[in-house]
Nucleic acid binder design. Structure first.
Lengths: 135, 135
DNA sequence: GTAGACCTTCCAGCGCGCTGGAAGGTCCAG
DNA sequence: CTGGACCTTCCAGCGCGCTGGAAGGTCTAC
């Protein structure tokens, strides 16, 4: 199976598949006599795994580490479990940051609603934003 | 006031201030006879504004657009209000994506808790993750 | 034999907000 | 006059996951 067919089958581009190979997610496949990559069909399930893991929020580096464990014959279960919990913690952190920013922005939106542009003087640059800590 | 003093006063580095100038957030200041940047003290409040706007989640490009309006003599109020609402919408979107990913990860964590590594076969790569769409 | 669809490699850039380093100039204290 | 603290410019890289393009090779259909 050539790279274009594999790409179509997996909903990726040939570029992306070459990139995954270079990133260590895929083994280099055998080549045809003309130098074309010639993939066995099992690669589709490996790529499906990569997609599943990505949609779970894992990075390519993490996915590579899982695949490397599996390729070396070990069950990556506990490694995967750790990664999952790390990502959950990371998501909580990012969500709390977003909530903080959202609170700040809502305050600004409230202030903006009560702002009259004609009273906005140049010295402040912008009284909606700028006054928050200085005024 | 030289760049290092301004940096100290604003809690930034000289590098960052030069970068801001190059990014169009600061006007190029006059120079001393030796070629050093010589800032008027008002620049501190401009930099404070940049910091306030950044902590509200605005990008440097957006902040530049606000400053450009102000520099041209217009009150940027309505522009700023638009930006605030766009960012609020963006935050909601990102939070809902994070919630979705979190739900997926929690499902995986539950599955992981019930997984016995010895039953994990190579064909699946990882039954915790990989089985999610193919199991 | 030729068009064109596919493949190959390599190098570069995206966005974002800086940060680091090299190679050199300026200014002040001792 | 020397050291060193500061400044200047320019170029490069970070992380992340691709994506684009150039320059060329291969295979198939007509």
């Amino acid at each position: 199976m050539r790279i274009g067919d594999l790409a179509t089958a997996c909903g990726l581009t040939a570029k992306t598949i070459r990139f995954y190979e270079q990133a260590g997610l895929l083994h280099a496949p055998p080549r045809t006599s003309g130098g074309y990559r010639d993939y066995p069909s099992e690669v589709t399930s490996r790529l499906a795994f990569v997609g599943d893991a990505q949609s779970a929020g894992l990075t390519l580096a993490e996915i590579r580490s899982i695949l490397a464990l599996r390729d070396s014959g070990e069950a990556p279960c506990s490694h995967v479990t750790n990664l999952i919990h790390e990502h959950l913690a990371d998501i909580e952190k990012r969500m709390s940051e977003l909530r903080k920013t959202r609170t700040a922005l809502r305050g600004l939106a409230d202030r903006a609603a009560g702002t009259d542009p004609s009273t906005c003087t140049d010295a402040d640059i912008c009284s909606i934003i700028g006054g928050s800590t200085r005024g």
